[in-house]
């Protein structure tokens, strides 16, 4: 993958609002953001109800994902362009999710909703009508999804990239600071994981830094090109953005996103936890 294949600019989106076979999809942490105004023609996916199983902690299964995209009018050969608030955290999560289920042509809008708004580009409250399709998903591509046992086995042996803010990594905060801090899990980080906050990948306006700057960022923390990599955060959405940078922009091999992330790891009985700003020992 490369920047050309996986990223489009806000200008490209504005130029392609009416292009056939381009489907623009908004995915936000604040699931009401779309309802207040969205890019013309964009449809909405709600990460809490559309993409999550409503009983177990897991994703919707292949059949549910097929039914979802079919009902929203997304076809297998459509170019899916994702954007969202919070610097594309949940749009990147959806991007990874589309890849997990094998959608071929999916792209992120660089900078997301924030860049679109800071550009003073138009938003609308008109709801688009799309004819239903018959979408076929692939089996989940487990080569890009890590589970807790993969993560425990990776301690001291793989690149573990914790993308939360420094205060969450060190154990001084338990959640991003726009959320209340009372949580049930323990604070801290996985021993030997390095802290590269997702925000270091992005400029203030939410666009990604250059490939050169991104490569330098990971070189700086001793990223080992010969090892497999797992990215994690609190619930797996910010780490989707880092997964996107590592695998899709920089072309690293064997990068997995751990969607269980700290809310799972920090609740496990008996696993090692490191506190403070240093990675700690295996």
């Amino acid at each position: 993958m490369s920047r050309e294949n996986s990223l489009v600019s806000t200008q490209w989106v504005e130029d392609n609002l009416d292009t056939d076979k381009v489907v623009i999809i908004e995915v936000d942490e604040d699931t009401t953001a779309y309802d207040k105004g969205h890019i013309k023609g964009a449809i909405k996916l709600d990460w809490t109800t559309d993409l999550q199983d409503q009983v177990r902690r897991d994703f919707v299964n292949k059949e549910q994902f097929e039914a979802l995209l079919s009902s929203r009018g997304v076809a297998n050969d459509d170019t899916v362009v994702l954007y969202g608030g919070n610097n594309n955290w949940f749009a990147a999560y959806a991007y990874w999710y589309f890849k997990l289920y094998g959608h071929q042509d999916v792209k992120l809008m660089d900078g997301g909703r924030k860049k679109w708004e800071l550009d003073s580009r138009e938003l609308t409250d008109e709801l688009p009508q799309r004819a239903a399709t018959s979408y076929t998903a692939q089996e989940q591509d487990r080569s890009i999804r890590a589970f807790r046992d993969d993560v425990v086995a990776a301690i001291g042996t793989q690149n573990l990239v914790d993308v939360r803010s420094p205060d969450e990594y060190a154990g001084r905060l338990l959640a991003p600071a726009h959320l209340p801090q009372e949580q049930s899990q323990r604070a801290g980080h996985i021993p030997t994981s390095v802290n590269v906050p997702w925000s270091k990948n992005a400029n203030d306006d939410g666009t990604f830094k250059s490939d050169e700057d991104l490569q330098a960022l990971y070189n700086e923390v001793g990223f080992d090109e010969d090892k497999d990599t797992i990215a994690l955060c609190r619930i797996g959405e910010r780490s989707s953005l880092t997964w996107f940078v590592l695998q899709e922009l920089l072309g690293k091999k064997n990068v997995k996103n751990y969607d269980g992330s700290w809310t799972e790891y920090g609740s496990l009985v008996g696993v090692p936890i490191a506190l403070g700003d240093e990675p700690g020992d295996a």
Binding site: D30, A33, G85, N86, N87, K114, S165, P166, D167, L173, P176, A177, H178, P197, S199, K200
Partner: peptide, 9 residues
């Protein structure tokens, strides 16, 4: 340290 911690609209 100037590092991003959170952002809200």
């Amino acid at each position: 340290s100037g590092e991003f911690t959170a952002e809200v609209p």
